[in-house]
């Protein structure tokens, strides 16, 4: 495992820690999109089906279980926790995420990694992850003020995929030497979706101002 990959995984993990910290300490999920969180549950469940069929390492198994467990926990807090669910910004979380699911599924049927149930679902999870942040970005744009934890959460989530891009470049030259269209293009799209957010996040950080996205 190279340093980009490890940094990417740790950034991903940290983003989840930040979000859980916000939910558990402030008892609030204001500014967080339940729809994006639902999409992540679906992404992890469909991608990590190979937990039953393939073994790579203890690290790999542990991280997969952590990602599935924490995404379900976040979903549970936002949907069912007596206090937390009342802070959910339901009216602002208006993105039609079912369209994303349907679109990604059709794409995965047309352009799968391989023609089998698990491979189509794996491809689906890659496509869906690329666009899963959209409901969250739309919600942020509609929010008047974005609290620090929410801003940091989204930043870390974007940084994770950007680091994976470096990991893929590194692996291409040192190890795999194969073009991997599906993850590469999806990863590029996924990272590009954050470009706008990154810009305003860094600006607000440099000017020591509150983060705000223009409508």
């Amino acid at each position: 495992m190279n340093v980009f990959r490890l940094a990417g995984d740790m950034t991903h993990l940290l983003s989840i820690v930040v979000l859980l910290l916000k939910i558990r300490t402030t008892k609030s999920c204001a500014g967080i999109s339940l729809k994006t969180q639902e999409l992540y549950v679906l992404v992890f469940l469909t991608r990590y089906l190979d937990l039953f069929t393939r073994y790579f390492s203890v690290y790999n198994v542990l991280m997969k279980l952590i990602f599935i467990g924490t995404s379900v926990a976040i979903f549970w807090y936002m949907r069912y926790h007596k206090v937390v669910k009342q802070t959910y910004s339901k009216d602002l979380d208006s993105f039609r995420h079912y369209h994303l699911i349907l679109g990604c599924f059709l794409m995965a049927l047309l352009i799968p990694f391989d023609f089998s149930v698990t491979e189509v679902l794996w491809t689906f999870s890659i496509y869906l992850e690329a666009v899963a942040i959209l409901p969250q970005l739309v919600l942020l744009q509609k929010s008047r003020n974005i609290d620090n934890l929410t801003g940091n959460y989204v930043f870390l989530l974007g940084a994770y995929r950007a680091l994976y891009l470096l990991n893929w470049i590194y692996r291409f030259f040192t190890e795999i030497h194969k073009i991997r269209w599906i993850p590469w293009i999806s990863g590029l799209v996924q990272t590009a979706l954050y470009a706008d957010f990154f810009y305003y996040y860094i600006q607000s950080w440099r000017k020591h101002e509150e983060l705000k996205l223009p409508a």
Binding site: D9, H12, D50, R54, F56, N60, K64, F67, Y164
Partner: peptide
């Protein structure tokens, strides 16, 4: 195999 080391990523 077709899947190779691609799938060791998260």
């Amino acid at each position: 195999p077709k899947t190779g080391s691609v799938k060791d990523e998260l």
